[in-house]
């Protein structure tokens, strides 16, 4: 399952990241925020407009906003 398909409130672990789908600077920023292989995340909120973009992700004690296009590059496994 890709991260953007994860139901809201379902804790999951990132099992793979396709870094080739991401711009290098954005990949670096995501990793700086701890959004990386092995991280435990929960999808908390989705935007309202078309595509329900962006997403708010809970990781540790942080909430991070990102776009669906980033979430699409990440494979998750419900935990």
């Amino acid at each position: 399952m890709q991260l953007d398909d994860l139901p809201i409130g379902q804790p999951a672990r990132i099992t793979a990241v396709d870094w080739t789908l991401l711009v290098p600077e954005e990949a670096q920023r995501l990793r700086a925020l701890g959004i990386d292989n092995g991280a435990k995340v929960t999808l908390a909120y989705r935007g309202v407009f078309a595509g329900r973009d962006p997403l708010a992700l809970e990781i540790g004690r942080m909430t991070v906003a990102l776009r669906r296009i980033h979430a699409r590059a990440m494979t998750v496994e419900p935990a």
């Binding site: 711009v23 954005e26 962006p54 708010a56 942080m62 906003a65 990102l66 776009r67 980033h70």
Partner: peptide, 10 residues
């Protein structure tokens, strides 16, 4: 240019 992303801590 390429569409930019949005990554931000809340």
């Amino acid at each position: 240019g390429a569409a930019s992303g949005f990554i931000m801590e809340l």
